[in-house]
Amino acid sequence: MSADDLTILDEQLLLRRIHPQWIANGEPESSNFDAKRSDDGLSVTLWVDESSIAYLLAGHEDFGISVLTAGDLRQEGFIIERAPMPDNPHHCDAVGPVAQKSSKRLRQKHRWLKKPGEAILDL
């Protein structure tokens, strides 16, 4: 496992794409925040500017976008690594515990930037 990238400050926003089928009662299922394998982590996009949303939704326009802070993830034991991809230069991996309690707490902390099939809200 790599070291936490501390140039990503705790207050910086991280965006997570949410599939429309992974929502219950208007909120993302906690499995959306579950690091199923500790070596892979959660795929997130660092909010840099409006392009972050475009990279995240490219080909997935009907998906939702959940927002957490880097600090939210670190409080649950995650480290955040920059992992740029050709189609998303702001991509990061949040690597952390495989724990159901962590995913439930992250679900409680999240807020919507965009609900599936709806317009983008203000940050």
Rank of each mutant, 00 (worst) to 15 (best):
L123F: 12
E118V: 01
A83K: 15
P28M: 12
L121W: 07
L9G: 07
H110F: 08
N32Y: 07
V98Q: 15
Q12R: 14
L6N: 02
P89A: 00
A119Y: 08
G71S: 14
Y55V: 02
A35K: 10
L46G: 06
Q100M: 15
I18W: 13
E27K: 04
L14E: 07
R74D: 12
S2F: 01
T7W: 03
H19Q: 06
S31W: 05
P20E: 12
L121E: 08
M1C: 12
S102R: 15
R16W: 03
D5I: 00
H60W: 05
D93W: 13
R107W: 12
S103N: 09
R17Q: 04
A99R: 06
S30M: 00
R82G: 00
H110L: 09
L46I: 01
R74K: 03
G117E: 10
D34N: 11
A83G: 05
K109V: 09
R17H: 07
L113C: 05
F63G: 13
M85K: 15
D4T: 12
L46C: 07
L57C: 01
L6I: 12
G96D: 11
A99K: 09
L123E: 06
L121S: 11
L9M: 03
G26N: 09
G41I: 05
K109W: 11
D34P: 00
D34W: 02
S31I: 04
L14W: 00
P86M: 00
V67F: 05
N88C: 01
P97D: 04
S103K: 00
W22A: 14
K101A: 15
F78C: 03
I79R: 08
L13A: 11
D72H: 03
Q75N: 09
E81G: 14
T7D: 02
G41A: 11
A35P: 03
A58V: 04
S102C: 14
S2M: 04
D49R: 08
R107P: 07
H60L: 13
H110P: 10
D72V: 05
M85F: 14
L57N: 01
R16F: 00
